[in-house]
Design a protein around this nucleic acid. Sequence first.
DNA 1: ACTGAAAGGCAGCCGTT
DNA 2: AACGGCTGCCTTTCAGT
Lengths: 156, 156
Amino acid sequence: MEPFKPDQTDIGILRLLQEDGKMPYKELAEKLGKSINPINERIKRLKAEGYISATVALLDLQKLGGTFIAFPHINLTNHLESTMSLFMAKMVEYPEVMECYHLTGHYDFMLKVVMPSMAHYNTFLKEKITILPYVGNVQSFLALSEVKRKMTYPYL
Amino acid sequence: MEPFKPDQTDIGILRLLQEDGKMPYKELAEKLGKSINPINERIKRLKAEGYISATVALLDLQKLGGTFIAFPHINLTNHLESTMSLFMAKMVEYPEVMECYHLTGHYDFMLKVVMPSMAHYNTFLKEKITILPYVGNVQSFLALSEVKRKMTYPYL
DNA sequence: ACTGAAAGGCAGCCGTT
DNA sequence: AACGGCTGCCTTTCAGT
C-alpha cells in the first residue's frame, strides 16, 4: 500500500472546498479542467485519508449569544508525561473548550473558550480548571472583539 | 421589519449543520420533525441573516505542511482609534493571519498564524508585523501541538 | 486514471391549507 | 408557517477507453 500523496489537482480541490464546502462537483470540475467523475473519486479519497476531516457550517457566535471569548493560559505544577496526558484528556472531554494548544515557553497550554457571559467563564474556571490538582497558575486573556477568523490555510 | 430571531427549530438546524454542513435537508427534516420545505426556507433565511456565515471543508493542516502554529501577542505604541483601525485593517488584509482578537489586559491583540516552518514565521514577523511603526512589543507563543480544535459552540 | 452516459436522489419552487 | 407534489440539477455508479 503506497502512501497517498495529494497531487496538484487534489490541492486545487482542497483550496476550493475550504472556501465553499458545498461547491457543486460540476463547478469544481470546470475550474480544474477535469470532468465530474475524477473530482468525485478524489474527494472521496481525500476524506477517507483524512485530508478533509469534516464539512461544517460556520456560525456567527456573536449573534447566537457567544459574546464572551477568553484564552486562558495555563501552567501545570509538574511536567510528567502522565500529568500532561491527564490534563489533555480533560480538555478534550470538556465541551466548553473549543481549542487547546500545547505551548512552548512561559505557559504550558492555551485554551480558547466561548461562552454567553463572563459569569459562565468564572464558573468554568473554578469548577473545571483550577479545581484540577495539577493545575498551577492560570492567566486569562479576554477578547474584546474578534477582528478576524477564517479557516483557509494560505500555504496550500 | 421585525428583527429575525431564530426559534428552537432554527437552533436545531444550526446544531446539526455545525457538525455536518452537508447533511441532506431530508435528514434534517426527519430529525427535527418537519418536512423538507420549511427546512429549506429556514436555512435560506439563516444564511441571509448571517447566522450561517459559510459552509467550509476543514482540512488536516498537519498533513498538508502547516506544522508550525504561533500566537503572537502584540502591543501597540499608542491606543488612538485611528491607530487601532489601521492595525486591524492590516491583519484582515494579511492572508497569513488566520485569526485576530482585540484583547483586554497586558496585550492589545493576539493573532493565530499557521505556517510551514519557523523560518516562514520569522520572516512574517519581521516583514509584516514589527515593521509597522505603531507596533511595540511582540511576544510569540509557539504551539508544540494542537490538542483540540472544534467548531461546535456548545451553548446553542 | 479519465471520459461519457444513464439512473437515482435531492434541492428549489409551485399552489394549497 | 408548513405541507405535498413537481421540475430540474446534482451526485453517484457503470461501462468503455
